[in-house]
Amino acid sequence: MITIIDLEKYYATEEVRTIALNKLSFKVREGEFVAIMGPSGCGKSTLLNILGLLDDPDGGSFIFNDIEVAGFNERKRAELRKHNIGFVFQSFNLIDELTVFENVELPLIYTGVKAAERKERVDAVLEKMGIMHRRKHFPQQLSGGQQQRVAVARAVVNNPKLILADEPTGNLDSSNGNEVMDLLTELNEAGTTIIMVTHSEHDAKYSHRIIRMLDGQKVTENILADYKSSVAP
């Protein structure tokens, strides 16, 4: 599903030029659950932004579903993104002015789904995430774990093939964190590809494979579980 080859990303500030990604290469197959780990500042978030088509690499190749997407302009990336990718962030990134329902509904609005169908699908997802009774609440009125569940609901409501999660449990206590990890596992079992950045070895164990990074490069890879692709390799 994803192939990156010699991916590069630089940040040029006034004096220093930071190499955030340094000729990074790996593959992620459809249906896989991959965890990315590494010390702070090694380029994990940068990588996730590129994989999520939020940012453009400075060099190398990024093939998403057999299409070379490196060098795509903002509009094309947005088009590809809204139909294929869901995001879960450490800080939830819910919109404070919108209710739970409205937050989850947003991606459907942007992909042009009709109002009646939107309601059906949002309700279904909220039900599945166990936050149906909170649908009229505003984010500020929810606990961190509940907020992250809303964020996950919002990430999956469009049935994306890929979910990118940047430290999804970073702001949660362990029991809330475990709940979110269970949710992600469920989604993965239902066929969604997941790439997750995490600092927690505990969370990483939920995945099939851990990619460890240092200074923008891949250092090791541990295969944790037998992964059988639903699609022929």
Binding site: A78, F87, N93, D96, Y110
Partner: peptide, 15 residues
């Protein structure tokens, strides 16, 4: 922040 989130979720510049 809200605008950022909306864009991530697929909102276009014109929207």
């Amino acid at each position: 922040k809200e605008i950022g989130v909306r864009k991530v979720l697929g909102a276009s510049v014109s929207q």
